[in-house]
């Protein structure tokens, strides 16, 4: 029986065969590589202009979250903190590959945020929703895949006062 070691590289022959098999049947998708190439150009330019929405919790790390009022419908809840703000985000799958994002933005004292916009950025663009008078929001049509949550709060005169953004995560 062969020892299975590749003569030239020291890589066992079985691993080389597996490598050929994986490269043929399961290569890194070209479109994924394109996204990776484009990531720096798209994101680095904005990183210094926004604050950070720090993740506080994610039900995906706590186990299954089930909305009992709707039977087996799955809901993922996440929470984030920014200076003076708390954001609760709920992601509910509505149809294949799409999500409804709902939630609320509160001050640290539990008061609604005055006004602002919630933005869910994704690989092909973004979806937006305005905060209502209670700090609630709903954003429909969020595609599955990597997203990041951004919050722009405004003063009464409409001027954006704070921009905050979470890290990217996958929904």
């Amino acid at each position: 029986m062969s020892t299975g070691a590749g003569a030239s590289t020291g890589i066992p022959e079985e691993l080389r065969s597996l490598g050929r098999l994986f490269r043929r049947t399961d290569p890194t998708p070209e479109r994924a590589i394109s996204v990776a190439y484009g990531a720096a150009r798209r994101l680095v330019r904005e990183r210094d202009s926004v604050g950070v929405l720090e993740p506080l919790g994610d039900s995906a790390f706590r186990g299954r979250a089930v909305d009992e009022s709707r039977g087996a419908a799955e809901v993922r809840t996440l929470s984030f903190a920014a200076p003076g703000r708390l954001v609760e985000l709920e992601l509910r799958q509505t149809r294949q590959g799409r999500f409804l994002a709902r939630g609320i933005v509160l001050s640290r004292a539990g008061q609604p945020s005055p006004s602002g916009t919630v933005i869910l950025r994704h690989g092909r663009g973004e979806c937006r929703g305005e905060l209502d008078g209670c700090g609630g929001f709903a954003v429909a049509g969020v595609p599955a895949g990597p997203i990041c949550l951004r919050l722009h709060t405004r003063r009464a005169d409409g001027l954006v006062t704070h921009r905050t953004s979470s890290d990217w995560f996958v929904c």
């Binding site: 990531a39 720096a40 994101l43 990183r47 990597p146 890290d167």
Partner: peptide, 26 residues
């Protein structure tokens, strides 16, 4: 791929990984 059930999930995690690196590289 080692931790994903299918290629679609792997691709999503792959994209998130590079997007996160771009934002955190500094």
């Amino acid at each position: 791929r080692a931790y994903s059930a299918n290629r679609a999930d792997a691709e999503d995690a792959w994209q998130a990984t590079w997007l996160l690196l771009a934002e955190n590289l500094h």
